[in-house]
Amino acid sequence: MHTIVVPLDGSELAAQVMPYVRTLAPLLDAHVHLLRIVPETPAGGSESWAQVLIAVYGVPESEAVRRADHDAVMEELHQQAQAYLDAQAQTLRSAGIEVTSEVRTGSPAETIVEVAAAHMPGALIAMATHGYSGLRRWALGSVADKVIHATDAPVLLVRGQAQPVVQPPRRILTPLDGSGLSRQALPLASKIARAAHAELILLRAVVPMIEAYIGAPVLGRPLVENSETLNALHEYALDELKAEAASLRAEAPRVLTRAIIGYPAEVIIDEAREMDVDLIVMATHGYSGLRRWALGSVADKVLHATTTPLILVRASE
Rank of each mutant, 00 (worst) to 15 (best):
A237S: 14
E266D: 15
L24E: 04
A128Y: 03
A128R: 03
G45S: 13
R67D: 10
T307A: 11
L248P: 04
V38T: 11
A195K: 05
P187G: 03
P253I: 02
G96P: 10
L233H: 14
Q79F: 05
L27G: 14
R291Q: 07
E317V: 12
P208F: 11
Q88E: 15
S142G: 15
L310N: 01
R36F: 04
S11K: 09
R136C: 02
S94V: 00
Y57M: 06
R292N: 03
L27W: 11
D145M: 04
A294L: 15
E40L: 10
M127N: 06
T3Y: 08
P121K: 09
R36I: 01
V158C: 00
A272Y: 08
H304F: 10
H304E: 13
G178L: 07
R273I: 12
E12G: 06
H304N: 09
E266F: 08
L202D: 09
R22E: 03
V143G: 14
E240V: 05
A196L: 02
V99H: 02
S190K: 12
R249H: 10
R258N: 08
G178V: 01
P253V: 03
I4R: 14
D278S: 12
R104D: 06
V302F: 00
V147D: 06
E61G: 02
L135V: 15
A68D: 02
A123P: 06
D69Q: 04
I172T: 05
T129H: 10
T174H: 12
D239E: 15
P217D: 13
A117F: 01
E211K: 10
S62G: 01
I268R: 13
L279S: 09
I280E: 01
K191S: 09
A30P: 14
E75I: 00
H70W: 03
A259F: 05
L173C: 07
E12R: 13
L53G: 07
E271R: 10
K191D: 13
L186D: 08
H285Q: 15
R170A: 06
E102F: 00
E211D: 14
T306R: 09
V17R: 03
V218R: 06
T129I: 10
A118V: 01
I172K: 00
L188K: 04
A198Y: 02
R22S: 00
E211S: 15
L181Q: 07
M282G: 10
A123C: 04
A189W: 08
R292W: 07
S316W: 06
L248A: 08
Q80A: 10
R93N: 04
P108A: 00
N231I: 05
A185G: 15
A109E: 13
Y263C: 08
Q51I: 01
G296K: 03
A139Q: 13
V207M: 06
A64W: 07
I148S: 09
V6C: 12
P19A: 08
P154W: 13
P42A: 03
I201K: 06
V103L: 01
A150S: 14
S316E: 07
D9W: 13
M275C: 01
H31N: 11
V267P: 15
E110T: 00
L200T: 05
P121Q: 12
